[in-house]
Amino acid sequence: MRAFRQPPASRTTSATSLRDVRELLAPKDVPLANQLRSRSLPNMRLIRAFHLTNTFVSSDVNVHSHFTSTARKLLLTATPGGNWRFFTESATNIFDDTLSSSPITSVFAFDSSMQHFVLKIILHTLFGVPTTDLDDRGIALVAQGVNTLWKLSKTQEELPLDLLPSMNEYLRAWVPAIENPLDFVIPTFETLWRVVAITVAMIHNDRRAIQVFRDLLDNPTKGQFDNFPAGTPSVGAVVAEVMRLHPPTKSISRASTTSFSTFGECLRTIFPLLRTSTVHVASIRAIQRDPEIWGPDAEDFSPMRHHPDTLTSEQSRALLGFGFGKLQCVASSWAPMAVGLIAASVVDKIGSGLEIIEGEGIGGREGWDGWSILFKSV
């Protein structure tokens, strides 16, 4: 495949104040179709990499409506009636099966293990794929493939010709009811695994935090998720602090465009940013680490700052990891609980043959050098 060269926007601006970021993400009196177009243009690279057809790359209101409706149904499948017991049991069983099928003493790369584990949970709980169908070779290919193609989508490098077809071969066999499974797998998996990995990395050697997460496994309810026991952060507070310091999307882009004629639409299909005058970038990471909002310890990991008696209204408004406005992530109220339970199913095994070996720093899609999971059968 020849390298795809996306014409640059004529100008890029950055929104770094809380007011500007919120106005960019939730513009007043702007029709939904215009907001969708503004979001889709900077995401054209995802069509090249993954052949996505969902709302993130489309300005069609009907596409958006279909995506959000289907996504909500999938979330309900994982948590029927708002009950998290099925999701909890699935996460613990999948992790237990992974460990039990390993050699007596095993060392796994931390990041690929988290990718592998989270993808299995998503496919089983949201899409109803039997765990017996989820062979490790296919899971590894899809999980690593998503990460590889995502990174390449940000470059002008050629894409591996056989990678996406191989990924889709597995996904369409697992999820035959959805025409393009990646439309829904990527928005859940690509973000979720990184937040889970960072959460585990942050708490793996904190006994009090591990106990709070274990308590959530025993009682997977919203009340338990939000409970602050005896001066210890809640699971919800830990996840919120992870997402504050390490937002899954460090910045969110919106493009301002002119209206298109029929001929212009054809050109836009070929050159997505040809008629784009400006790309505005909302710096989520900067807002969520701004010392004027979060205080002098803004760079520190301090989950107790999210206690309801401590968190200010401005700080609450500055938590933008799921976006804001009409295009806010449809899973914004679901994902934190899912992160807490998946992370809990991992740290629950610490001290029972499982050990997390630290690397030099906390990673994201990359940067996990030195991190590994050591498992000894007991």
Rank of each mutant, 00 (worst) to 15 (best):
P220W: 05
V238S: 05
K28A: 13
S352G: 05
E366Y: 12
L141P: 02
Q6T: 10
R305V: 14
T131E: 13
R275H: 07
W193Y: 15
F87D: 05
A282Q: 07
L126W: 14
V212W: 00
F67D: 07
L41R: 03
D226N: 04
R244S: 15
K28T: 13
L171S: 05
K222L: 14
P31Y: 06
T16I: 15
I198L: 10
L25M: 11
L217E: 02
F228Q: 02
E158P: 00
T92W: 01
L161A: 14
A331K: 02
G367C: 08
I139E: 06
R289Q: 15
G82P: 01
L74G: 00
V30N: 11
D136A: 12
L374V: 08
S283H: 03
D135E: 10
T221W: 05
S58E: 08
F127V: 11
G367N: 07
S90A: 11
T262R: 02
P187A: 10
A344N: 01
D60P: 00
V63D: 02
P165F: 13
L25R: 05
G361Q: 05
Y170P: 01
L245W: 07
T199D: 04
L134D: 06
A209S: 09
A15H: 03
T68Y: 01
F189Y: 09
I104Y: 01
R244V: 15
L75K: 06
I284V: 12
L141N: 09
D290W: 03
A143M: 05
D136E: 13
L159V: 11
T249C: 12
G351A: 02
E299P: 01
A335H: 06
M202Q: 05
G145F: 09
I342H: 03
G351L: 02
V242F: 04
S332C: 09
N168L: 11
T79E: 08
E89D: 14
I198M: 09
E89Y: 09
A298V: 04
M337L: 12
Q115V: 08
D136Y: 12
E23A: 10
L182K: 10
R2P: 08
R317C: 01
T55N: 03
L374P: 00
H51E: 15
H64Y: 13
V185E: 06
W368K: 05
E360F: 11
T258L: 01
F375P: 00
T155G: 07
I198Q: 11
L164E: 14
G264E: 04
V57Q: 03
G321I: 12
Q144N: 10
S10E: 08
P291T: 14
M167E: 06
E169N: 04
K250M: 15
I210G: 00
I357V: 13
T278C: 04
F56L: 13
E265Q: 14
V239I: 14
S112R: 06
